[in-house]
Design a protein around this nucleic acid. Structure first.
Lengths: 334, 334
DNA sequence: ACTCATTATGGGAGCGCTCCCACCACAGCA
DNA sequence: TGCTGTGGTGGGAGCGCTCCCATAATGAGT
């Protein structure tokens, strides 16, 4: 009932070996033979049996993409990385097995440990040490999206958080802000630490060091932006740098509730450039992270690892997106 | 180097057949034998080779989840369906191959047409007729999430949009609103049509028919909510039903830009219950769609189809979520 | 004690493909 | 004329598993 390679071979008068080679583009077959075989294959509606191919070749043509369930639920950013991964995977002829882990299982799932994939792309931030080290025993090529403290040596694809922090510092400084508050991300996460420390360092370099009482810590959620604001708003900063857009959204909302508004009373900067950023009121100045590019880069690295080529962790450039949530100090509109 | 079933068989002194049966839970093996084999398997760190299993059994244990790329990028709702699918798939021992299609390719992709999966779950709304009919030729069990005009007979998992429209009508009517505007979704989509028609029908039933000039059509985006508002705001409705949350967000923003506010000047209702809804200002009254449940239901149907059992399309119940964006007419809060 | 059902196990044939190796034809070269 | 090289092809051995069928071990019935 199903057309197999043998049918194609018989139909075009060659052996199965030759048919296989012709269809996989092996250079050793004569051009005439190849095109004949390909014509017959198309004619018969042949398509290779993936399982047989995998078994015989020992490869699967698949990468497993492992995502903490909580991330996708909370953060649209993750969806963009997934999109980038799928796009690049399709281009290089791979399929993507999506494994969303609830993190309730302390061990890496079956698909990760065995068989189903040639490599692993892991959204790293939320996974525990045990989980990651369990994965590590698979010896599968692995790329982390985002750094992870427990795996300093892993191949990762990250954003240039350091540069992002500096860009924000310079931007606010140029606008004349000298009393700037920071709503940092959870400091157990490397990306959150980088954003904070590079920002503080750059502000210091610009002769506007940020005092401790203007630094608060949130957990990257809207709610923590709102509550984090209350601890710094009394100090009357002229600008607030929230370490991601969700917290920035919380800050904007908190300001509104407190009867203040951005940017007239306080300039606000986020980080991530989520799609919602431009629909906020006011549209949010932020740092663009290009998660699509991160996903694509992850697959590019993966392809190279699978081919046994040497690879290095990649840092994706960021850039500042200036919108209406920031404005020069002392130049109030209307 | 890799532990195979033969190793386990040899290690536990049984044949490969028995080992296979023991590990797959076949009832015919003696309990003692089974536990011995399982112990040895665990001891050796055995895990089955997926490709071999697929080839021999003719099944893959995989469902392909096909998502239009644009959807995931624009609509967080899709991420929730994906989450539900992954969750349910894991529970029934399947893995999920995520295929994001840019829709630029007019033919269904390879993975869909052949081999890689036992069944197909398709986020239907954005796919063209050609694409869907191409998929149809695969004869794979297929479940659509959301209806599709071109496939009236397909097995689908949808929300109870009719009930949703009615719930909104009754809610607004109970609050005393008699002059209600509707910002409908794109009428080429069945779900958008259902929301509109059921809403209009229920309003008529409640003796408050909605005149034509209070109905506008958007495309389910924030921007179209904003622009759609302009065409109805001059008619001074006391409430607006936007057919999804994104458009409702646009409406809220438009109202603010026009110097009005919800719910004091106009009550606003959305549809979807996206996570952002509760972070809007004011938090949005909306209809909860439970996309997680839809994803889970899709897999449940898929499992049954794969087992050859009869299935019927499912409609997931909705419910009204009342928040601060709606309030009784004639009781203005200052 | 002998048959017949029942339960537990082993043997072995594939699943459809890839890939190694052998082979053939024919060229070029001594 | 024979020898090595080379481009093209065929043969066939697996990849690791499942599942059908045969066989062996057990128990029940007359």
């Amino acid at each position: 009932m199903v057309v197999t390679l043998d049918d194609v071979a018989a139909g075009s008068g060659v052996s199965r070996s030759t048919a296989s080679r012709a269809l996989s583009g092996d250079a050793r077959v004569k051009a005439a033979t190849r095109s004949r075989v390909q014509a017959v294959a198309k004619d018969l509606g042949y398509s290779p049996n993936q399982a047989a191919r995998n078994l015989a070749s020992g490869r699967t043509g698949t990468v497993a993409l492992v995502v903490p369930e909580t991330n996708l639920l909370e953060n649209p950013w993750v969806a963009l990385v997934i999109t980038g991964v799928c796009r690049a995977a399709r281009r290089s002829g791979r399929s993507v097995t999506l494994w969303m882990d609830a993190l309730s299982t302390e061990r890496a799932p079956e698909v990760v440990r065995h068989g189903g994939a040639d490599g692993l792309v892991i959204m790293a931030s939320a996974f525990s040490r045990e989980w990651i080290s369990d994965v590590n025993t698979t010896r599968l090529p692995t790329v982390l999206v985002g750094e992870h403290d427990e795996l300093p040596d892993a191949i990762t694809v990250g954003s240039d958080n350091d540069e992002g922090g500096r860009l924000v510092a310079r931007h606010l400084h140029e606008l004349g802000h000298r009393k700037v508050a920071v709503l940092a991300g959870p400091q157990e996460r490397p990306d959150a630490r980088e954003r904070l420390s590079s920002f503080l360092a750059e502000m210091a370099l610009l002769d506007s060091p940020v005092p401790h009482y203007l630094v608060a810590e949130g957990d990257f959620s809207v709610g923590s932006g709102l509550s984090g604001l209350t601890s710094i708003i009394d100090e009357q900063p002229t600008a607030i740098f929230a370490a991601n857009d969700l917290m920035a959204a919380g800050v904007l909302r908190g300001l509104r509730l407190a009867g203040k508004s951005a940017p007239n009373d306080v300039s606000v900067v986020g980080f991530d450039n989520l799609p919602i950023g431009k629909d906020l009121e006011p549209p949010l100045t932020t740092v663009n992270q290009d998660p699509l590019a991160m996903g694509e880069e992850a697959i590019r690295l993966m392809d190279r690892m699978i081919d046994g080529e040497p690879v290095e962790s990649a840092v994706i450039p960021v850039k500042l997106i200036t919108r209406r949530s920031t404005m020069p100090i002392n130049v109030p509109l209307d």
